[in-house]
């Protein structure tokens, strides 16, 4: 087997509230190969979002290493980390987190503003991303003119527009009805097998989790060592 794509080594994370230490992740170890699609499950408050944030380089572990494609993320300076995020990570949020004052097009374009691409190159990439999520005809719409499912698809377009290697999704269907959730899950599956994106997805929804290759469970900050492979 090749070098692991995402690797967590003895990761601990605590938050501090006043002088009280709140342990969130407890000695988490994880090895993911490239092209993996993992569903991360577990009760509320078990530390799923925290784990995702550490892999995304949005937060730093209290101890241990987060290594993505050989890069020890925890060692990067803040500025380098921001650049690293924009180059490598596509993040999908439960509540989409689109900028309400920007159109679908402008929202998807945002991450490209951090690149050296010309306006016309950006346009081509935004159009490609929006057509992958099936919303090429909604470019000029504002978030409040879109349904929840459409908003989440715009957010997915934003996550993939820079062609990142790793997509992290935090309950991407958590706020959606069944049909929209199904669409979003189909889209993520497609990104995984058609575009070979490695995906880590937090979800409470067993139906969504079925789309993943493997499921991992987090409980009170402890990641189950047992992998449960999926048939489909």
């Amino acid at each position: 087997m090749s070098r692991p794509f995402v690797q967590l080594q003895n990761v601990n994370k605590s938050y501090w509230r006043d002088s009280l230490e709140i342990p969130v992740l407890n000695d988490v170890n994880l090895d993911l190969p490239e092209g993996e699609f993992v569903a991360l499950m577990g009760p509320s408050g078990s530390g799923k979002t925290t784990l995702l944030n550490l892999i995304a380089g949005i937060d730093r572990p209290s101890s241990g290493n987060v290594i993505v494609r050989g890069q020890n993320v925890s060692r990067l300076s803040e500025g380098d980390l921001a650049r690293w995020r924009s180059d490598n990570i596509g993040f999908v949020f439960q509540f989409y987190n689109l900028m309400p004052v920007l159109t679908a097009y402008e929202n998807v374009e945002l991450p490209l503003l951090l690149t050296k691409l010309s306006r016309s190159e950006r346009r081509r990439q935004v159009e490609t991303a929006l057509s992958i999520v099936g919303l090429a005809d909604r470019m000029k719409h504002y978030p409040n003119q879109l349904s929840g499912g459409q908003e989440q698809r715009v957010a997915i377009a934003r996550a993939v527009v820079t062609d990142p290697v790793l997509i992290l999704a935090d309950e991407p269907t958590g706020d959606l009805d069944k049909v929209s959730a199904q669409e979003v899950m189909d889209l993520l599956s497609r990104l995984n097998h058609e575009f070979n994106k490695t995906i880590i997805m937090v979800t409470h929804d067993p139906r969504a989790a079925e789309k993943a290759h493997t499921q991992r469970h987090l409980d009170k900050g402890v990641l189950n060592s047992h992998e449960s492979p999926q048939a489909g």
Binding site: I58, E78, G79, R85, S86, D87, I89, F93
Partner: peptide
């Protein structure tokens, strides 16, 4: 605030 957090998560610097 959430928009600011999102921008930063996308890779925009402080």
């Amino acid at each position: 605030t959430v928009e600011i957090g999102t921008l930063r998560a996308l890779g925009f610097s402080r």
